[in-house]
């Protein structure tokens, strides 16, 4: 019968009515995408606002992650220098260094004889002339220590420092934990600040989606009324709007992802340049697969929740058909 229809009628698009729940969901999704594509400017603007709102906290998270890696690199190279008392003999120094080698909190130990120490000092310009005037070597035996990498938190470091200071052979331990502690405090602060910012901007995204979906429900008031009149449940009415909200979220999330990627691309070369100047192996971390996944899931969820509240409020406001 359908085949016998005139051409201009059969080719008219007709929303398909399909067997099961799953396929009807897909249909609702396509319906809402179709509706979105009929108002492309509105859809793009909304998604753009969402994208920009999400790009900011995402970018800050990625940058913070880089700072963390960078600070970790710094700490990898932190070493403590143990200056032994002047009366410590070579044998005692060797024994101590072997004992320290067995300490699980210590990764590497290097024994420096007074001669070696002097030699190293002499490499440094300015000091050379002063040292040449000395009759005999005033330097004690020294041991440089690299802590194990899981021992880089400030507490661990100061504990190790204290342990070394308490050794009877120790004269002084040279290491300044203050800057590590300051850095960690700053990073904790930055973390909190970024979380707070994400919360605010997430709330903003929620409100944007909510507003758009509310406008859509008002625009489709007649259809909603008809569906209510013929026995449509709230879930049925809600479904296409949820897809619309999720689509706004997804598009916004993709945009945020691309914006952050672009930003990282833009600062990649300058960062590399700075790193080479500092003889650092540091490479800028991009937005990982996992980060992207979290970003997209959050943005979709924000869209869904925003839509849910908008339709819910609309349905409650227009209780009867």
């Amino acid at each position: 019968m359908r085949q016998s229809q005139p051409k201009n009628l059969t080719k008219r698009k007709r929303s398909g009515f399909l067997k099961n729940y799953f396929i009807r969901h897909i249909q609702a999704a396509f319906n809402s995408i179709g509706q979105l594509s009929r108002t492309p400017i509105n859809t793009l603007l909304t998604s753009a606002i969402i994208g920009i709102a999400l790009a900011l906290p995402t970018a800050l998270f990625i940058l913070l992650k880089n700072v963390e890696v960078l600070s970790h690199n710094f700490q990898q190279t932190t070493q403590l220098t143990l200056y032994l008392k002047p009366d410590i003999t070579e044998n005692q120094a060797r024994e101590l260094s072997q004992a320290l080698q067995k300490n699980p909190n210590i990764r590497e130990v290097r024994l420096i004889s007074p001669a070696e120490g002097l030699n190293e000092l002499q490499q440094q310009a300015g000091v050379k002339n002063v040292l040449e005037d000395l009759q005999n070597n005033p330097l004690p035996w020294a041991i440089t220590i690299l802590p194990t990498s899981n021992n880089h938190a400030p507490e661990g470091l100061s504990q190790l420092q204290q342990e070394l200071r308490d050794l009877p052979e120790t004269d002084t331990v040279q290491f300044d934990t203050d800057w590590v502690q300051r850095l960690f405090a700053l990073m904790t602060l930055a973390h909190r600040a970024i979380y707070a910012l994400s919360l605010f901007l997430g709330l903003g995204v929620l409100l944007i989606v909510n507003n758009c979906i509310r406008a859509a429900t008002e625009h489709n008031q007649n259809e909603i009324n008809v569906i209510k009149l013929i026995g449509g449940t709230y879930a049925f009415i809600r479904r296409p709007f949820l897809y619309t909200g999720a689509t706004y979220g997804l598009l916004g999330g993709i945009l945020a992802w691309q914006l952050v990627d672009l930003l990282l691309l833009w600062i990649k070369n300058p960062t590399h340049h700075v790193a080479t100047l500092y003889h650092s192996q540091f490479h800028l971390l991009g937005i990982s697969f996992f980060d992207t996944f979290v970003l997209l899931i959050s943005s979709i969820m924000l869209g869904l929740v925003g839509a849910w509240f908008a339709v819910g409020r609309h349905l409650r406001a227009t209780k009867t058909a």
Binding site: R12, R14, F17, V226, G231
Partner: peptide
Amino acid sequence: LRDRTVFDNVALPLVIAGYSY
């Protein structure tokens, strides 16, 4: 519903009730 065909308008209650195509 003005943006749906006669067929789709009539089918709507069945779609809502979850009948097969």
